[in-house]
Amino acid sequence: MEIAAVVLLAGLVVGYFVLAGCDIGLGMLLPHLARTPGERRRLVSAVAPYFLGTEVWLVGAVGVVAGLFPALKHEVIVAQWPVFVAILAGWLWRDAGLWLRPRADNTVWRGTWDVAITAGSWTLALGWGLVVGGLLSGGRPLSPFALACAVTVVALFALRGAAFGAERLVPADRPEPAATAGGNAAESADVAAGATRHLARGAAMALLFTALTAAFSTGAPEGRPVAAAAVAAGLALVLGVTSGLWGPRLSRHTSALAMAAPPVAVALAVELPVVAAPQGTLTLVGYALAPLVPVMILGQVWLYRMLRQPAASSGFFA
């Protein structure tokens, strides 16, 4: 039962990074990938139904931390209060942008919420970067090592978003190739696919820099540096593969692996106060959750299968 609680929490956090990385990263790249009003609308409708299914992983993780690991909550959330307030503010404005942007059709309204979506996505990525950096550096979030970690995590979010965009931004009603001779209908998707290689290289550089700061400055990882180095080596390999010619094609899977690296590194390398909850609480939560786990899995799988198609150009979020 205790190990189940730990696995549940780790699974929720990794799931959040891997899945929400897609819509956060795509939100970060909004101004770059989508320039015309039509492209922006398609980009937001590519992000929007998806975020409903991804942010719940974080909500679940926070619930599990609060209910089953109160000591962990003290160590992670209360100790990094300002960062979490920033994350919360970014989250709030980003979601508000996604809900409200399609509700009215004028340039100022949509422009305002585009800013909210982009700024909120960047705030979230940077906030999670600072949290990862703060945890890996043993509570020194402003040390060079922690800041380098944060930059790496931001680059990974952007990479994940670009890989997601390369798939989802292809227009649903793609005309015959001949008809698009004058202009490229899938331009956003092509730009996103091209960006994956550059972002992978950028992330690899940031990772190298992080390794250098870990070796030569204070604030290097405490706890288990070997585990952290192993995860970093795996991440470097994945980024190396994505930087190559096959990068755009492989990025769908490699970016997912890369996004899993930060939470896995924290889980393996940092000594967190993981004291499982007493039996009574575990039993209550276990019995309440067990019958619903199949429904949760069904809903998630169903949602992602439906969303494998390119984004629609009309609907609630377009």
């Binding site: 679940g60 619930g63 209910g67 209550l284 939560v285 959750l289 949760m296």
Partner: peptide
């Protein structure tokens, strides 16, 4: 107190 909230978020 937080256990029912954990169930609420997840379930």
């Amino acid at each position: 107190f937080s256990a029912p909230l954990a169930v609420e978020t997840m379930a």
